[in-house]
Each structure stands twice: as structure tokens, then as C-alpha cells.
Design a protein around this nucleic acid. Structure first.
Lengths: 307, 307
DNA sequence: TGCCGTTATGCCAGATGTGCATACCCTCGG
DNA sequence: CCGAGGGTATGCACATCTGGCATAACGGCA
């Protein structure tokens, strides 16, 4: 009698039992499983020992399942099948053949870049399925970390996590500053960073837009002063309220100029060094063809936009 | 590098990976799994080889899952958990602790016996769940064979399958004959089998009520003649139509006398030997406590009915 | 009774997995 | 700058498991 303690390989014995019951014969099942009949016979005995009950009614013309055997088939067949398909999918994924790309992006920032890139992707790889998730930079990074996203289209915030993932800089935008309409700067065509020295800065919550404040700080430092954040708010719209009510300023990526916000004026910053990088992050590990294709498409779109 | 060909034990390695990812450390996971860290480390390598991709990002402070690792967790955890609960349920079942009894019965025949028996069962084992299935004798037997039923409450038809399962005779009813109201026999208080000699018999489809015709034939033979089946119909109600329209007769278990059917009269058969056995079949193998309880309850009810 | 099918058992060789000891790598702190 | 202490990987020897081969045991059937 084979040993009972052997929990490993239980799954295989269950598969074997499924085959045996399908065939109604240990012999024929052994052929299908490419092992010998004695080996299979012992597997069945082992399985019965492990479960503590008979699974097969041995008869002179073959075997047929007992009630317990039937119960096992009903309970285990779907699991075994699910296991197999899951395994196959994982293998495909490991080989780099993803059937689905999950992309995180920030609508206001990335739409102009993402839409044409996806069009390109659909042309070169029409079969790949896309899941788009409009979420904040922080959520994107968390999503990447949790494996729920394959891509993050993200701004300057992404540099804080760039070493955890693959990354590519897509483009570099100029910077603008948001001031209240009533501000003396609001009438200017453009300004330099230096002129912001001594102003009250409005910060944004580190949790939602990580790295933004540090980026602003670094920019100011390059201009020779240290910004003073009088208040830190969460949510970009709250920043604008504060800009108006407190006559504060805040540094923003250039694409905000196209937006309208009552009471707020966006003035371009003329400093050469004041740039806002827009980057894409994606999971490390073997890159699938579709992954590479999406990165390429994004780079092309970015290049065309710069030109 | 460990061998790649080893498909057996894949499941265990997947479980191990789940633990490793939960713990974020091969070391701690090894403790939980009661194996050494090197063994577990090798399991992870083996798993990665089998899948063909990296699952863990090894860092100096432990490990964290790659995208593929995350995907594996998402796909496999529910399967592993389902597998475990299924296995536990099967073990319980093997030990004879069924949580549910699936009973097949024929409403018209068994109701008078089943209802009180279930009441008794509920008293002695209130926690056992019951699934009742009103189905034809043939369906009941098929259900038993397919493992979809634990019990079949069945008449004479059951004897054809009695050796495949455990069986017990519950009671033995007298027999009656169905004749048309216009028949000369319809006025009789009772008759003997012999008087049916030469009559046209209505048979019933072997598929739906297996053994019924054979039972009738055997009864007649014991009375010294061979019945002639002029027609075989499917469904018991069709039998009555034929009895009326063809002036045929048919032998039935005694409980039909309580039924009403327009144009049909049921006359008791007085022969001592003409009996209709009512039996219960149940799955072979270790009988659970609830199984034994139900059988006992049925026997008691039958005994009370006979008294 | 002998033949042919079935499943079960004894025995041996090869594959697999584990533990132990140790190597290796990185970070942190003196 | 180097050693301590945390992590994971590797070399090696040994126990365990599993499968194949040969053969037994058993039941039906001519």
C-alpha cells in the first residue's frame, strides 16, 4: 500500500482519475496518459488513501466510479480545466504575448498624445485589447506596483518611480505659471522664474501628485530662490481656487494654457531650463510585442508633436 | 538550474509562490511552509523555468512580484482556494459526513411514504440538507448511476438495478387492474389474475418505467398465461386513455386505487402472489450517518403503514 | 480447462526534492 | 572603509517517490 503522506502530485493523480473515469478503464487511461497500467493503478490507490475512501468500483471488465468518485469529478473537473487554461494564459504572457494592455493615464494631460498613439497601435496590432483607466498619477503608480496596470502615462511625477519600471521620456513641454486675473503678472506675454521670487506658492497634495512640489522647488532653486508654499491642497481644481483667493502662484505643465479656468490666467515661463517632462512607465520583464508597439507609437506621436 | 520537465508538483510550487508573495520574503515564507529557504528558493526557480518568465523581483530586502507574478496570483489564488475547499469537502464525504442528501422519488408513488420519513429524519438529524427531485423511475436510476442522486425511491422497476446499489424493500402493496368503466369487470369488488387471460394488455414504455412490463408478464405467467401487449405507450396517463379507448387492461400498484381517472375503474386483484414491492436504492460505499438515518426512517414509516 | 481480458503486486533504477553548509550580494552603521 | 547582518543562490549528499518491467491474481467465456 503506497504511502499516505504524499500531498505533492495530488493534482496529477486527480487528473489521472478523471481520465480513468472517462475511459472506464485503468488500462486505456494508462495508454492515454503515456504511463504503464501498474503505475496508474498505484496512483489510484494513493488517491483513495489520501481521500480516505474508495473512488473506483473495480470490476472484471474495467472500473466505474463510486459515489465519491462521481463527486470528485463534479468538484474537480472545472477546477482542473480552469487551472489548465490559467496556466496556458500565464505561459503565453510569459512569452510576451499579452492579449490585453492596461493603460493608466491622466485625461487632461495625456489625451492629446494617447488618442493618436492608440490609433497607430490599432493599425499595427489590431487584435490587442486595450483597457484605459483615467486615474491620478499616484493611482497609476500604485496600479503599476500592484500589477494592475501595464502602462502609466504620467508627467514629472513619474520620475519618483522611474527606477522601479521601464521608462521613456516622451516629450518635454514648456512650463507656465498660474496667477490670478487681477495679478500684475496676468497681462504679461511671458515671465521668468526669477520674477516669482517672494511669491506665495500653492502646493498640491503629495499623495495625489507625488513629486510635483519637489519639481517646482527644484525649478525655483535653479533660478536662485526657494519657493514658499503657503498652503498645500488636494486636487488640481482646488489649486486654482487658492490661486484666486490667496493671490498665490503655482507652476504647471504647459498644456494647462489651453484650459480655461475662471479668474485664473496662465503665463508661459520663458526660462530655457524650465521644462516639464512627460514620460511613460511600463512593467519590467520581457516586453511583449504589443508593449513595444505602444511605446514606439507614443514616441512617434511625441516626436511629431514636437516638430 | 533545476530541471524543466517536472510538471508534477506544479500546484505545490504555485501555493509556495502565493505564500512567498504574501510574505514578501522567501525566508519568512519558508518558515511558514516548514521547509528551508534554499528548498523554497529552488522551487521558485523551477516555477519560473516552467512558466518561462520571471515571477519575482529579487531585491536585497526580500522579493516582490513582477507583472507576471501578479498575474499568476490573480489567476491562481481563487483556483487554489477552490481546490482546497473541494478537497476538504471530498474528505468529509469520504468519512461519511454528507451535508446534503439528494433524493429521487416519484411523486404519485412515494409521497405518502416520503413525507413522514423526512419528518422523522429532520428530528434525528436536523442539520442535514435535502434535495428532492420528482422524476421518473428511469431518470432516478440514471441519476444514481451518474452520481447525481444519493437515493432513489422506486417501485418494482428498481429491481433491474438493485445489484448495482444498496437496496431495501420498504413495503409490498397489493395489485390492482385498470379497466374501462364500461368493462364487465368494472363492477367487481375484486378479481383474480386468471380472469385477465385473453385480454388486451396496455404496456408502458420501457425507457420510462423499466421492468414494469416484465413484472406484469411475470405475474400473469404465475397465473398460467402470457399477456398480450397490444400497444406500448409512454407516460402513465396515456395508458389510461388506451384503457378506455381500446378496452384494454393494465396491472398497476395498489396505490392507484386512490387516484381518480375519468372513464377508468381500478379493481383490486385478489391473488396472494400479486404484490408490488416498493424499494429504496442508495449508493454503495461507506454510508453516512444521514444515509443510514433516512433508510431507517423509511423502513419505520413503511412498517407503520403496513400495521 | 485454457485463453484473454482486467487490475494488483514485487522489485529495481532513475528522477525529484530536501536539508545542511556555505557562497554571494547589498545596505547600514561605526 | 570595513565588518555585521539582513537577504537569496548554490554545491552536495541523502532520503523519498515514482515509474517501468515482470508477474500474480482474478473473472468471464468459449
Amino acid at each position: 500500500m503506497p504511502d499516505v503522506h504524499t500531498l505533492g502530485g495530488m493534482m496529477d493523480r486527480i487528473r489521472a482519475l478523471l481520465t480513468v473515469i472517462e475511459e472506464g478503464s485503468v488500462n486505456r487511461a494508462a495508454v492515454r496518459l503515456r504511463i504503464t497500467q501498474p503505475a496508474l493503478s498505484r496512483q489510484m490507490q494513493a488517491l483513495e488513501n489520501e481521500l480516505g475512501g474508495k473512488l473506483l468500483e473495480r470490476e472484471t471488465s474495467g472500473v466505474k466510479p463510486t459515489g465519491l468518485g462521481h463527486a470528485l469529478v463534479k468538484a474537480m473537473r472545472p477546477l482542473v480545466e480552469g487551472y489548465d487554461t490559467a496556466l496556458a494564459e500565464l505561459r503565453r504572457q510569459a512569452r510576451g504575448e499579452r492579449s490585453e494592455l492596461r493603460v493608466g493615464y491622466l485625461l487632461s494631460a495625456a489625451q492629446s498624445m494617447l488618442t493618436p498613439a492608440l490609433a497607430k497601435l490599432r493599425k499595427s496590432q489590431p487584435e490587442v485589447k486595450l483597457k484605459l483607466h483615467d486615474m491620478s498619477p499616484r493611482e497609476q503608480i500604485d496600479g503599476l506596483r500592484a500589477g494592475e496596470l501595464d502602462f502609466a502615462l504620467i508627467g514629472q511625477e513619474g520620475v519618483t518611480a522611474a527606477n522601479e519600471f521601464h521608462s521613456a521620456r516622451l516629450c518635454s513641454l514648456h512650463v507656465c505659471v498660474a496667477v490670478a486675473d487681477s495679478d500684475s503678472l496676468a497681462a504679461r506675454k511671458n515671465i521668468t522664474l526669477k520674477e516669482l521670487k517672494g511669491r506665495d506658492f500653492i502646493g498640491v497634495d503629495e499623495d495625489q501628485v507625488p513629486g510635483r512640489n519637489r519639481w517646482a522647488t527644484a525649478l525655483c532653486k535653479s533660478a536662485g530662490f526657494k519657493p514658499r508654499f503657503v498652503v498645500v491642497v488636494d486636487g488640481i481644481t482646488n489649486v486654482f481656487s487658492q490661486v484666486v483667493s490667496e493671490s498665490g502662484v503655482t507652476l504647471l505643465p504647459g498644456y494647462f494654457e489651453k484650459l480655461q479656468h475662471p479668474g485664473v490666467t496662465f503665463v508661459p515661463v520663458s526660462d530655457e531650463k524650465a521644462r516639464w517632462d512627460f514620460i511613460v512607465l511600463w512593467q519590467k520583464g520581457r516586453a511583449s510585442a504589443s508593449t513595444r508597439a505602444l511605446v514606439e507609437a507614443l514616441k512617434q506621436v511625441a516626436a511629431e508633436m514636437n516638430a
